[in-house]
Amino acid sequence: MTSATLPLALSTPMTPPMTATPLPLAVSTAGLTKRFGSRTVVTDLALAVPTGAVYGFLGPNGSGKTTTIRMLLGLVTPTAGTREVLGHPIPDAADQALHRVGALVEGPAFHPYLSGRANLARLDAADRHTDPATAKARIDAALDRVGLLAAATKRYRAYSLGMRQRLAIAGALLTPRDLLVLDEPTNGLDPQGTREVRSLVGSLAADGTTVLVSSHLLSEVEQMCTHLGVMREGQLVAEGTVAEIRGKSRPVCRVLTSQPDAAADVLRGLGLAEVTSQTGEAHGIPGEVAPEAIVAALVGAGVPVAGFTVTSASLEDLFVALTGEGFDVSG
């Protein structure tokens, strides 16, 4: 189990993986490609999820997100390319990597006639790296963390969608994890549940767990994530910190006024870019100029200001800009 390329601290057999030298990337892929028959679902993907990040994995339906997640978890074999999770190549060292990875993939799935607790006990029994003596305590802790302790003895088939989702999240938390891969974690959850998931992700990230969240709820993603990766038709069209991705869209300053031309002149004088004027309003890109300075300049020039806003494009607008306006699934 020693590897010449890894530092000694990472290579001892009984290493619990949070070692003295954390890896820069929790997940990295190179040239990852997957073809199902004649259809290429993922093309040449180079994913880089930094350790400790909350990485929002976005993309329209059918863009290859779930296939990518399945490839990372060793469920699907890529047609080409390599992948590494927590520094271990998949599938060669999958056993070492995956027991530190908690996953929720394409919705919850459990045995309908077993209780919630029994289902978690089964997953725990399958894990060779967990101590059976602490199984009950850990299962209770996981159920408590997702708020299912009271319903733990009910049969899974009696659970509502939100409860099933919570059980799946509990399954990902049975043992300390270094990476959580959550595919639509808030699907079906009530507002309290959604808030709880958000705070759970936040607290896990604060402790150094990397979280890969795939979601369509862009407002959720905006609140939770530190990094984003956007997929479109099997390719990664944008990746980076939220600030970097947002930086691609610049805030726009909008002045509501009865004298748009005069306002436009003031804006140009201040050095705003792309200044335009229409009936009732003037726009410009403020760049480095502070909004307070713009307002002061407008008032000082005697321009009647009825309203003033500086808005940045919402993540939704960014997302649609990156992935296309079309409603049809790509294939």
Partner: peptide
Amino acid sequence: LGTLRYLLTVPVS
């Protein structure tokens, strides 16, 4: 049932 994928990612070889 869909439980196969969760069993494999525990991981169970």
